[in-house]
Simulated assay, not measured.
Amino acid sequence: MERTQIGRPLGGRRLSRRALAAVSVLAAAAAALTGCSSGKATGDTAKATASEGGSTSAAKSGKNAIYVIGGKPDDPFWSAIKRGGEDAGKLVKAGGGSVTFLGPKTYDNLGPDAAKLTLTALSQNPSAIVVPDWVPENQDDAIKQAVKKGVPVFVYNAGGVEAAERTGSLKYIGSDDYEAGKAGGVKFAEEGAKNILCVNTVPGAANSEARCKGIKDGAKSKGAKSKQLPLPSSNFGNPSAVTQAIKGALLKDDTIDALVTIGVQDADSSAAAIEQAKAGDKVTLGTFDLSQSQLDRIKNGKQLFAIDQQPYLQGFYAVSIANQYLSYGVIPPQNPLLTGPLLVTKDNVDEAIAGTKAGVR
Results as ranks from 00 to 15, higher is better:
Leu285Thr: 01
Gly315Val: 11
Ala241His: 05
Glu209Val: 15
Tyr312Asp: 00
Leu304Gly: 04
Thr287Leu: 01
Asp296Trp: 10
Cys212Pro: 01
Ala271Asp: 08
Asp289Tyr: 04
Lys302Ile: 11
Ser240Leu: 09
Ser240Thr: 14
Pro311Ile: 04
Ser226His: 00
Pro239Ile: 12
Thr287Ala: 13
Val202Asn: 13
Gly263Phe: 12
Val242Glu: 05
Gln276Ile: 02
Pro239Leu: 13
Gln310Ser: 04
Gly263Glu: 08
Leu295Val: 14
Ala241Arg: 02
Leu229Thr: 09
Pro239Asn: 13
Gln310Ile: 12
Asp281Ala: 12
Ser234Pro: 02
Ala277Val: 03
Asp253Tyr: 08
Leu231Ala: 03
Thr243Cys: 02
Lys220Val: 14
Asp217Gly: 11
Leu259Ile: 15
Asp281Gly: 12
Ala271Tyr: 06
Lys225Ser: 15
Ala219Gln: 08
Ser240Met: 09
Leu231Cys: 08
Gly263Gln: 05
Pro311Trp: 01
Ala210Cys: 11
Ser221Arg: 09
Gly237Leu: 09
Pro311Gly: 13
Gly214Glu: 04
Ala271Phe: 11
Leu250His: 08
Asn235Cys: 10
Gly214Val: 13
Val260Asp: 07
Pro203Val: 13
Pro239Phe: 12
Asp281Lys: 14
Leu229Tyr: 06
Gly237Gln: 08
Arg297Phe: 03
Gly315Ser: 07
Lys252Phe: 10
Asn300Phe: 08
Ser291Glu: 05
Leu285Tyr: 00
Gly301Ser: 03
Asp289Gln: 10
Ser291Trp: 00
Ala219Asp: 12
Asp257Trp: 00
Ile262Lys: 00
Leu231Lys: 06
Val260Cys: 06
Asn238Val: 11
Gln276His: 00
Arg297Thr: 01
Val242Ser: 01
Gly263Ile: 02
Gly315Asp: 07
Asp257Phe: 01
Lys225Ala: 11
Gly301Phe: 01
Phe288Arg: 01
Gln314Ser: 01
Gln303Asp: 10
Ala271Gly: 03
Ala224His: 02
Pro311Arg: 03
Pro230Lys: 09
Phe288Glu: 01
Leu229Phe: 04
Val202Leu: 15
Thr287His: 01
Ser270Ile: 04
Ile298Leu: 07
Asp296Lys: 14
Leu251Trp: 02
Pro239Arg: 06
Asn238Phe: 12
Ile298Gln: 11
Ser221Met: 10
Asp289His: 09
Ile262Phe: 07
Ile246Pro: 02
Gly286Tyr: 06
Thr287Pro: 00
Ser208His: 14
Ser293Asn: 07
Ser270Met: 10
Val264His: 05
Ile256Met: 07
